[in-house]
Amino acid sequence: MKKLDKILLNLDSTIESQHALDSAVFLAKSCSATIIAVNIVNKNVVTNLARFSDKSIAEIEIELEEDGWKYLYDAEEKAKNQEARIVIIQEYGYPEQTLPKLASEYKIDMIIIGQNPQIRKDVVQGKTAEQIIEHAPCAVLVVN
């Protein structure tokens, strides 16, 4: 297997994402790799929240951005405490498009994503992981 230098980790609000972070930290330490932790402000989530909220799209985006930075900062602290290398970034878009694009742009060796095993594969959320696997230019580790 190719040496692991760069691991792209998708970080969001889910517990599976935290499990993915644990796996990323373990692998980064084991292989002396760098984790590139990305929080994606998901445009689908913004649109859906705007439909059922009195808040404007800009207000919702700002809330999601701040939540995202909390996940990123917590991940940075966790990695720092375990002496794993990490870079944190925030992006806007759709995870199924953004993750493969970043993986190509940053010459990533492995993408790690969290996935709820209970989500049916025929609904939108369930398709995201499959789409990432389909379009990724590298290995993808899906963590339950």
Partner: peptide, 17 residues
Amino acid sequence: DNNEYLHTMARISRLLG
């Protein structure tokens, strides 16, 4: 205030994006 820190990081990221 951790919220202020995160809030500022979010604003920087948004602006320079």
